[in-house]
């Protein structure tokens, strides 16, 4: 199982957002997408998810153009955690997680086998069992994000696209959410592509980083390759100092104020 972006070009309101971006994504790997605001990260994720179409180029899923894959078939393979997470709706946590089963249902809304155990497992993994009867608008932001991830688990995809999954979460939730995603990714051999704003978190969790700048890939490779102060200054216009994480050995960037 693999995914390939092939010369993707996209314009939004007349502006070139992605400029002929090509990249190959392999199974059983955790990719991090970084880059400054407006670099085209979310646009690229929308194209990879198949909900938006590029102006030129194509996305290939196992060598098949994603535009040709029926929506439900695609949703059985690929799940997306959107920026901003789930809206505060009146459905209960359990009902929302059960919505993840939609692509597996026939036209009458039934499934071959009872999905209850799959939903239970997703709730347990995310520690939401005791909240399953609560309505989404009664939850905190962090709990709602866990519900969103539980919904993706119920979807049982082999590709996971995450758009800023940790934004607005406190550090406790950030770490536990990414821990969960990585454990899940390792267990099932998922292909994960996550847009992350926190470069140090990206370095801790990702196998490979993809740095987008002005609609192009500015750098790609292991965190060590990409998180070079020179590359970072080029992209963000900010000076940093690179050090090693004392325990994991991952590269970490220290910010330094100009004044």
């Amino acid at each position: 199982m693999k995914m390939k972006a092939n010369q993707l070009t996209a314009t939004r309101q007349g502006n070139l957002v992605l400029d002929s971006v090509s990249y190959s994504f392999e199974a059983d790997r955790f990719y991090g997408m970084i880059g400054p605001n407006g670099a085209g990260k979310t646009t690229l994720l929308h194209l990879l998810s198949g909900t938006d179409r590029p102006d030129r180029g194509e996305v290939l899923l196992d060598d098949r153009p994603i535009a040709e894959v029926p929506r439900k078939t695609l949703a059985r393979r690929l799940a997306v955690l959107q920026q901003g997470g789930l809206p505060p709706v009146g459905f209960t946590v359990r009902e929302v997680v059960a919505m993840g089963r939609y692509p597996h249902q026939n036209w009458l809304g039934g499934e071959e086998s009872d999905p209850a155990s799959i939903i239970d497992e997703a709730l347990d993994t995310m520690g939401l069992r005791h909240l399953q009867k609560r309505r989404l608008h009664q939850l905190s932001g962090g709990e709602r994000q866990r519900a969103a991830l539980a919904k993706l688990m119920a979807q049982q995809p082999d590709i996971l696209l995450l758009d800023e999954p940790t934004t607005y979460l406190d550090i406790g939730y950030q770490v536990s959410l990414l821990d969960t995603v990585r454990a899940w990714q390792r267990e099932k051999g998922l292909l994960v592509i996550a847009v992350l704003h926190d470069l140090n978190l990206a370095a801790l969790y990702c196998d490979e980083l993809l740095a987008l700048h002005n609609g192009k890939i500015a750098a790609a490779g292991t965190p060590e390759d990409v998180l070079q102060p020179s590359v970072i200054e080029e992209m963000y216009g900010t000076q940093t100092t690179a050090i090693r994480h004392p325990i994991t050995g991952a590269p970490q960037l220290m910010l330094q104020p100009k004044a």
Binding site: T51, L74, Q82, P87, F91, M99, Y102, Q105
Partner: peptide, 19 residues
């Protein structure tokens, strides 16, 4: 009916779930 339930999450959510 179920597609409309998914719509309450937003159109993009619904699309990502196969609607």
């Amino acid at each position: 009916g179920q597609a409309l339930n998914l719509f309450t999450l937003g159109e993009r959510h619904a699309a990502n779930l196969g609607v």
